[in-house]
């Protein structure tokens, strides 16, 4: 993250008729990064995206794209942004190709060969001359991605991009976004209410709840973190008291498990083998040590559940 952020949100707030939809939101997105915006429906994801592309005004704060304020220098700021906002709504009475030509005309310097190239990238060669009316949601999603990529954006926004895609399509999308981020240094923002779908796509995730940022985190961090892990230990029933004492030297929270001869404790990653060797050194027979890694899914549910 040695480069400058492509996108900066600075204390962004949106109030509509007294209701705070987005509250003091601040985060940066860097080139080459796939950033996930997560949250239950109504958390303010789409509102945030709408502000980022200037569709709605910002009540307070500012959004900068490549240093240009979206409110004060709109044309400059939006020039290198490609986006799908909410649904990939296209002109249904036009062919997919005409839809792309329509958007290509709105940015200078997009050749027809670029349009053909992008059609291949999203895999719509066979249906591109059909009317959009006949497309499935998955195909419209691909066409939406195509129009967002036409002008080689530096910042790509995809709102719920996995909607309507089958598992193979999601995989393709993941590979495409990876490639864009790594090879072309594009900053990508992906929103979703389904964590499982974007957990694998994203490098970093922000969780929104009721318009507030509750958590930003690197997705890989979860696996190698220094956080406390929940550890279930099973020993021979007779020595359980002694095992609890030993565990207490390493952790502040140790409780007996529901099954006889089990205990539950919180340990850091590196303390798990230490606990094991202490137990064995005291002549306690260890049947199992299981760690329970709270996945992002659990964190997400925990945070977003009331």
């Amino acid at each position: 993250m040695d480069h400058l952020p492509v996108v900066q949100l600075q204390g962004v707030t949106k109030v509509v008729r007294g209701r705070v939809l987005v509250n003091q939101l601040s985060f940066d997105i860097y080139p080459g990064e796939v950033f996930g915006l997560l949250g239950p429906n109504g958390a303010g994801k789409t509102t945030t995206i709408r502000m980022m592309v200037g569709l709605i005004s910002i009540t307070q704060g500012d959004i900068k794209i490549q240093g240009h304020s979206i409110t004060r220098a709109y044309e400059k700021a939006i020039g290198r942004v490609g986006a799908i906002v909410e649904n990939p709504d296209m002109y249904r009475y036009l062919s997919g190709y005409r839809n792309l030509i329509h958007y290509a005309r709105m940015v200078p310097g997009i050749s027809e060969s670029r349009v053909d190239e992008i059609v291949k990238i999203v895999g719509l060669e066979n249906q591109i001359h059909d009317k959009v009316r006949t497309y499935s949601l998955g195909m419209r999603q691909r066409l939406g991605i195509a129009q967002a990529l036409l002008h080689k954006p530096a910042f790509l926004i995809l709102d719920e991009p996995t909607n309507g895609l089958d598992p193979a399509g999601i995989r393709e999308l993941r590979d495409l976004l990876r490639r864009l981020a790594q090879d072309e240094d594009v900053a990508v923002l992906v929103s979703s209410h389904l964590l499982s779908e974007i957990e694998m796509i994203c490098d970093r995730i922000a969780i929104l709840q009721r318009g507030k940022l509750v958590l930003t985190r690197e997705t890989k961090e979860v696996v190698v973190s220094e956080r406390l892990l929940q550890v279930y230990v099973t020993v021979d029933e007779v020595n359980i008291e002694q095992a609890v004492q030993i565990a207490s030297t390493l952790s502040k929270s140790v409780i007996l498990g529901t099954q006889p001869g089990t205990l539950v404790t919180m340990l850091t990653h590196k303390d798990i083998p230490r606990l094991n060797s202490h137990l064995i050194a005291s002549g306690i027979q260890v049947y199992s040590i299981q760690t329970f890694t709270p996945s992002l899914e659990d964190t997400f549910l925990e945070i977003t559940e009331e």
């Binding site: 592309v53 709504d89 002109y91």
Partner: peptide
């Protein structure tokens, strides 16, 4: 009504 206004307006034009 078709929702295309969103994609129409996020172009470098006032």
């Amino acid at each position: 009504s078709s929702g295309t206004i969103k994609l129409l307006l996020i172009r470098p034009y006032r």
